[in-house]
Design a protein around this nucleic acid. Structure first.
Lengths: 145, 145
DNA sequence: CTACAACTTCAAGTCAACTTGAGGTCAAGC
DNA sequence: GCTTGACCTCAAGTTGACTTGAAGTTGTAG
C-alpha cells in the first residue's frame, strides 16, 4: 500500500495543502504515519476527498460530512438517518432543477419584467412547493443536538 | 399595491427580521418606503426571497445571487452567463444525484468496508466524472472579476 | 394620553472554513 | 556535508453571513 504525501494529494485533487492539513487537524481525513515530519496518507484518502467535495457541494457542513463518512472513510450514521438525508437531497435536487429552469427561462424570456411573467412565477412557485420552508434547514448542528 | 412590513415578511417566510434588515442593507432586497421608521416592502419581495433561498441552496453567495437577480427582482446578467450558470447547476444536480445514490447505497449495502465495495466506488467515480475538479468553483467572485 | 409591542440604528460579536506568515525540520541530490 | 525545497507547527487573520444587545422611536389599542 503506497502512501501519499500532502503534495501528492494536492497535485491530484487541487485542494491546497493548508486545507488538507486543516482537514487532518479536525479529523476529516487522517494520515497514517509520518515520514520525518511529513504526513503520509493512505490512498483511500483520494476517495474520501471526493466524498467530502460532494458533500460540500450538497451544502453539508464539514461537521455533517464527518458524521456521514467517518474519518476512516466508513459511514457512521444509522440507516434511517442516511435515508433521511438522501430524501433531503432529493428535495434539494428538485429545488435546484427549478432554479436551473428559472435561470434558463429568465435568459430567454423577452418579458419586460419577470415579476409579471406567468411562466416565471410558476417556476418559482414550483420550487417552493416543498423545498422553501425547511429544505436542508432542519438538521443543522444545533437542531440535531 | 399593499406594502408589507418586516414582521409580515418574517411571518410569511420564516426569515428572521435581522436577516431581512441585513439583506436590505446589502441591497439584496429593497424597501420602497417607510412608515414611521418601519421599512415597507413591496409584495414582490416574497418572490425575491424565494429566489434568494433557492440560490443559497444552490450554493451561490449572496453576492452572486444579487448578480443574478438584481435588487428590483430583475435579472441582471447577460444571457450567456445565465446559461452558463444553468449548465453549472446541471452539473451540480448530477453530483447531488450521485451523492444521494451513494448515501442510499451506503445505507443498504452490507459490505464490511465500503472502500472495497465496487458499487460504492463506481458511484463515487461517477460523481467525479465532471463535477469534482471544477464544478461550481470556476466562477467565484475573484475569478469572475 | 399612555402603554406597549413592534419596529429602528449602530457597533460589536460569532461561527465555519480556511489562509497567511513566521520560523523551524528534514531527506535527497549534488 | 551542505543546500534546497517540500514539508512542518502554531498563532493570528480573513471572509461571508448573520446575530446580539443596548438604547431609541412610533403607530395603534385601550
Amino acid at each position: 500500500m503506497k502512501l501519499l504525501d500532502i503534495g501528492e494529494l494536492t497535485a491530484r485533487t487541487g485542494i491546497p495543502a493548508s486545507t488538507l492539513r486543516y482537514y487532518d487537524e479536525i479529523g476529516l481525513i487522517s494520515s497514517v504515519a509520518r515520514h520525518g515530519l511529513r504526513r503520509q496518507f493512505p490512498p483511500e484518502t483520494l476517495l474520501q476527498l471526493k466524498l467530502i467535495s460532494m458533500g460540500k457541494s450538497a451544502g453539508f457542513s464539514l461537521d455533517e460530512i464527518s458524521g456521514m463518512f467517518a474519518p476512516d472513510g466508513q459511514p457512521d450514521l444509522p440507516r434511517p438517518e442516511l435515508h433521511e438525508r438522501a430524501d433531503q437531497l432529493d428535495r434539494q435536487i428538485k429545488e435546484l432543477t427549478a432554479l436551473r429552469d428559472t435561470l434558463r427561462h429568465v435568459a430567454d424570456c423577452p418579458a419586460r419584467t419577470h415579476m409579471e411573467c406567468p411562466t416565471f412565477k410558476r417556476l418559482v412557485e414550483l420550487a417552493g412547493r416543498r423545498a422553501g420552508k425547511d429544505g436542508r434547514k432542519s438538521l443543522n448542528k444545533k437542531e440535531r443536538a
